[in-house]
Nucleic acid binder design. Structure first.
Length: 288
DNA sequence: GGTAGACCTGGACGC
DNA sequence: GCGTCCAGGTCTACC
């Protein structure tokens, strides 16, 4: 199957693919020009999406023979992952007048690559906390390889596990085989709540909730603190949050405080004038 | 409400 | 090769 999906302009496929490190995490593969993702459809079929930029949108290639409902699911999933319908024109208009953001605006940077589900993004975000990026990549790969369904055409490659697949595991396996360490009970608890229907994470993707309430719900998840909640709000398109980690403190200090020790308040203050887009301003700022 | 210490892994470093 | 130290956010207990 081959189809073209249009995006709200301005749009750059490479800019979305490169927006952060997500494309380095399984089941993503490929590069900024030719992005691959192994998707488990609601039908249970596992298929590989091949995504490439195509003018004002994206070309989506999958195996032939998908049912109409499966094709519709692929279309909706890709639109979500790439944020095709997001309107960032107010941000671009403001950024055009800020030298440190002009390049981002000119290159249509602003959309942030998402996984197929919020569940997957919450798990991945938990696995970014309190660890080095190399460890995050290893933990995510372990989770996919241990619990995900294989791609029939290449069984060594797998989809991200569904909540029920992770929920059927146990803390010892997640801790000792997936090497999640103390994060194991957080991921297991999340998967069990979603699998049991006690937590409808995916509903938060379209929930018409004020950002503070959405943040409160994310913070209620075990393993999700201020940094993780802000990162997830960004992924949900709520750009009035700044995910403040040690890197943020470092770059903001170098940019405005001469490298002196600072705290989260200084990071917030540095981008306060960007209001509903301060997360994007922080993310795409051209740091010295 | 604020703070200290524990949590866990893997890489860097010294011996 | 082995042991130690450290970085990286969140949770819990305590004040």
């Amino acid at each position: 199957m081959d189809q073209h999906l249009s995006a709200r302009l301005p749009f750059s496929f490479a800019a979305v693919a490169d927006s952060h490190g997500w494309r380095q995490l399984a089941p993503f593969s490929g590069d900024r020009e030719d992005l691959r993702y192994i998707l488990r459809l609601a039908s249970g079929r596992v298929t590989e999406l091949r995504l490439t930029g195509a003018g004002a949108g994206v070309r989506v290639n999958t195996e032939d023979g998908l049912e109409p409902a499966e094709t519709a699911e692929v279309t909706a999933t890709v639109a979500w992952m790439l944020g095709l319908d997001q309107d960032l024109s107010p941000f671009y208009e403001a950024a055009r007048h800020e030298p440190k953001l002009a390049a981002a605006a000119a290159q249509a940077k602003g959309r942030i690559l998402r996984s197929a589900t919020l569940f997957e993004d919450v798990v991945k975000t938990i696995l970014t906390t309190n660890t080095a990026w190399a460890s995050t990549k290893r933990m995510v790969a372990n989770v996919v390889n241990l619990f995900g369904d294989p791609l029939p055409a290449d069984p060594a490659r797998r989809a991200f596990p569904a909540p029920a697949q992770l929920a059927a595991s146990d803390e010892a396996t997640l801790r000792n085989e997936a090497r999640l360490g103390y994060r194991a009970p957080y991921v297991l608890d999340l998967a069990q709540q979603v699998a049991a229907g006690a937590l409808d994470l995916e509903a938060l993707r379209t929930a018409d909730l004020p950002t503070p309430e959405l943040r409160r719900r994310l913070l209620a998840l075990k393993g999700v603190g201020p940094y993780a909640a802000a990162n997830l709000l960004m992924l949900l398109g709520r750009y009035d949050a700044i995910p403040i980690d040690s890197w943020a403190l470092t770059v903001v200090s170098k940019e405005w405080h001469g490298g002196a020790p600072i705290g989260p308040a200084e990071v917030q203050a540095a981008f306060a004038r960007w209001g509903q887009f301060k997360g994007l301003a922080y993310w795409f700022w051209d740091y010295a």
